[in-house]
Design a protein around this nucleic acid. Sequence first.
DNA 1: GTTGCGGCAGCGT
DNA 2: CACGCTGCCGCAA
Length: 139
Amino acid sequence: MTGDNSTFQKNPNIFILKKALINKTITKLQFDVYMVLLNIPAGKVTTYKNIANIVKCNSSRAIGQALRRNPFAPDVPCHRVVKSDLTLGGFSGSTGNKTVERKLKILQSEGVEFQPLKDKKLEIYHTKVKEEHIWKQST
DNA sequence: GTTGCGGCAGCGT
DNA sequence: CACGCTGCCGCAA
């Protein structure tokens, strides 16, 4: 193949992930999930459910579990994952406002925009990502 | 080496 | 709003 090897050169993280899988510091599900994350560019986000579909796992919650154990943060961008209703969801193993605020700040610094839900309380937890920032898989 | 149990950064009804 | 459910994984017996 004359194919594109630049992916590997631009993402040395892939090499690190494979190594971690072989050394069994991460599970196969973690490996699959983290590989998906590496394809999400800054300024975009995806959902737990979307990742679950990609890695063929029927439990979005298991995805959250894999993310919370991410040993490679922030190189593996676990903060670019939100809930299906486009609200923020948890971060770093917690759903508390204080913790989630950190997630919000990181995403905003990457250019992601948010809109609060008017009919709900103006809490961070009810802040939604604008749809234009949802990551669409390239074919 | 194996089995069983309980909890999880969510989702659907 | 409250509950039940899913698959996965760490830890104790």
